Amino acid sequence: MLIFWEQRLVFLATPKAGSTAVEVALEPLASLAVQHPPQMKHADAARFNRHIHPWLQDMTEDRFTTVALMREPVEWLRSWYRFHLRDYHDGPEDIPAGGFEGFVGRYIEQPKEVTMGIGTQSGFLGIGSAPPDRIFRYEDMQSFTRFLEDRLGCEINLPRINVPPAADVTLSDAATETLHKTLEPDFTLYASLP
């Protein structure tokens, strides 16, 4: 999470949606950068609105604009899978059983277990309660950086960091259909983003 005091702007760091690159690029401009522990770095919209935003408003008598990124839901899970592969260094035989499709099956059964307690992007972003003011598609980083450049008054160049290892992330039609049903709120939200 990054807080820009003068601009009354807060970046909520959606996991696996470019948050580390944004934080590396913008930390020098932020009034406050929360990067550790992960539970604070990745404070979700509900937690931010319940605890942090009232504190900021109390100090400034102003409302802060909140922004976040959202990744296409299947690509988001692919990123989580590759993230987990970092734990398996010795070779392909150490990749968890079932590959990406097995990982998706585990996600459908226990979503918070394989996403470090996050569950879904729609849940993280507080859809249905108090979502961020602006959600940008991760896949359209240009729109997001233009928004930041306008708000922060400077040119933004995001580095390419935290790149996960290459992996086979194919998914059968049946698994894709099940995943679409499971993540319907995420797909609906993603489709609604400009």
Score class of each variant (00 low, 15 high):
Pro38Tyr: 04
Arg71Thr: 05
Thr182Trp: 06
Pro165Ile: 11
His180Phe: 05
Leu56Trp: 01
Ala174Pro: 02
Pro15Ala: 03
Pro15Glu: 04
Leu29Arg: 08
Thr14His: 01
His36Ile: 06
Gly105Met: 02
Pro54Lys: 05
Leu77Ala: 06
His84Ala: 08
Glu27Ala: 15
Met70Ser: 01
Ile118Asp: 04
Ser79Gly: 11
Phe144Asp: 04
Lys112Thr: 09
Ile127Phe: 02
Met116Asn: 11
Tyr107Gly: 07
Tyr88Gln: 08
Leu56Ser: 05
Leu179Cys: 12
Cys154His: 09
Ile95Leu: 14
Asp133Trp: 11
Glu139Phe: 05
Tyr88Val: 09
Ser31Lys: 04
Glu177Gly: 12
Glu72His: 02
His180Ser: 12
Asp62His: 11
Gly91His: 02
Ala43Trp: 02
Ala46Trp: 05
Leu183Pro: 02
Val104Asn: 00
Asp44Val: 05
Ala174Met: 05
Gly99Met: 07
Phe11Pro: 04
Pro185Asn: 09
Ala46Thr: 08
Pro164Trp: 10
Gly105Lys: 06
Val67Pro: 00
Phe4Gln: 01
Gln35His: 08
Ala97Arg: 13
Val104Gln: 00
Arg71Ile: 07
Val169Trp: 03
Leu152Val: 10
Pro194His: 11
Ala167Cys: 09
Phe144Pro: 04
Gly98Asp: 01
Asp62Ala: 15
Glu184Leu: 11
Leu77Val: 11
Arg50Leu: 13
Pro37Ala: 04
His51Cys: 14
His89Lys: 14
Thr188Met: 07
Arg71Trp: 05
His51Glu: 15
Asp168Lys: 12
Ala43Pro: 01
Met70Pro: 03
Thr120Tyr: 09
Ala43Met: 15
Arg71Gly: 04
Lys41Ser: 10
Leu152Gln: 06
Met40Tyr: 13
Ile118Leu: 07
Glu6Met: 03
Ile3Gly: 02
Ile52Cys: 12
Leu179Asp: 05
Arg137Asp: 06
Pro164Ser: 11
Thr120Trp: 00
Leu69Val: 09
Tyr88Arg: 12
Phe124Ser: 09
Gln57Lys: 12
Phe100Leu: 03
Pro37Val: 08
Asp94Gly: 13
Ala46Leu: 13
Ile95Glu: 15
Ile127Val: 15
Asn157Gly: 09
Ile118Tyr: 00
Leu189Trp: 01
Gln110Tyr: 12
